[in-house]
């Protein structure tokens, strides 16, 4: 009996450039070159767009087309950045980062744990379903004042806010994922006499690794939203505080700098999760 073994998928990532190989047809060479050129064009255009935007912003501010007092300008932002020490920006960054990661971790773990609980008991998940839906669509920021009264105006209130915003989504996403695990796989495990815990450990959870990372990616962004909203309300420190403070004293450079740092932070955290995902996915392929 003959078996044809298909080539492994996704094995091309670290291969030497296919263009360097001699045994490819001219058509393929053209095709590969075109893809490469398109990628380069996209990368260059992205950077170019940003530079263009910064250029006109700066130019506009210098020429007086826009009021740099309320619009700030790239150079003023840079200056603010370089005078970090005066504004304690690094400290504010750490505060926000700490609060976000704390909220994120609690939200993610709590959310997954709750989803597991709800998966365990169909009855419980049916009973709680309408409440979860309402909680999910409720703008959690509206709970801000209540949270402050309950846990006090401080870091704790901010973290609770982040958890409130990120956890419910995780619960719903993960539960949905758990429940849509391939029933044939479940049956296969049951043919070996697997109990519910084994079914979860060996089939349901590993089947949902990508669901997990998808919800973590949403989660990190939402935690940041929660933290900033919290800092707006109970401001003592953090980028949210810095932004509100900057607005109140009409120091728009500070506000813009805060927003830009925030954006960078969001990107870096998101990338960390993407990286983690790749590590986990490659890890289990080892």
């Amino acid at each position: 009996m003959k078996h044809s073994v298909s080539t492994p998928p996704g094995g091309i990532a670290f291969a030497p450039s296919p263009l360097a190989r001699a045994d490819i047809s001219p058509e393929r060479r053209v095709y590969l070159r075109r893809i490469q050129q398109e990628r380069q064009l996209i990368a260059i255009s992205r950077v170019g767009l940003l530079l263009l935007f910064l250029f006109f912003w700066e130019l506009g501010a210098r020429q007086g087309w826009i009021d740099s007092f309320i619009m700030s300008s790239p150079s003023r932002i840079l200056k603010t950045l370089f005078s970090l020490a005066d504004n304690h920006i690094v400290m504010h960054m750490w505060v926000t980062l700490y609060e976000t990661l704390t909220g994120f971790t609690i939200g993610a773990f709590g959310g997954v744990l709750l989803a597991v609980l709800l998966w365990q008991s169909e009855l419980l998940s049916k009973v709680l379903e309408p409440y979860l839906v309402v909680l999910n669509s409720l703008p959690k920021i509206a709970l801000g004042p209540v949270i402050i009264i309950w846990v006090g105006a401080g870091t704790r209130a901010i973290v609770v806010m982040a958890v409130a915003i990120s956890m419910i989504v995780t619960v719903l996403e993960m539960l949905e994922g758990f429940n849509s695990t391939d029933p044939e796989l479940l049956k296969m495990a049951q043919t070996f006499g697997a109990n519910r815990r084994q079914v979860f450990q060996k089939i349901v959870f590993p089947s949902n690794i990508s669901t997990l990372f998808a919800s973590l990616k949403i989660n990190i962004g939402l935690s940041l939203v929660g933290v900033i909203a919290g800092e707006f309300l109970v401001s003592k420190a953090g980028l949210g505080y810095l932004i509100v403070y900057g607005g109140q004293v009409f120091q728009l450079d500070l506000v813009m700098t805060g927003v830009i740092i925030l954006a960078l932070m969001a990107v870096v955290m998101y990338r960390c999760i993407t990286l983690m995902e790749r590590l986990v996915l490659n890890g289990r392929k080892k």
Binding site: D182, E184, L185, K187, M188, Q190, T191, F192, G193, K202, I203, P206
Partner: peptide, 16 residues
């Protein structure tokens, strides 16, 4: 209940 003397094969291979 699920019996250790029985092996069960389904339509699909259901390899993980």
């Amino acid at each position: 209940g699920p019996n250790a003397k029985v092996g069960y094969m389904l339509q699909r291979d259901n390899l993980l």
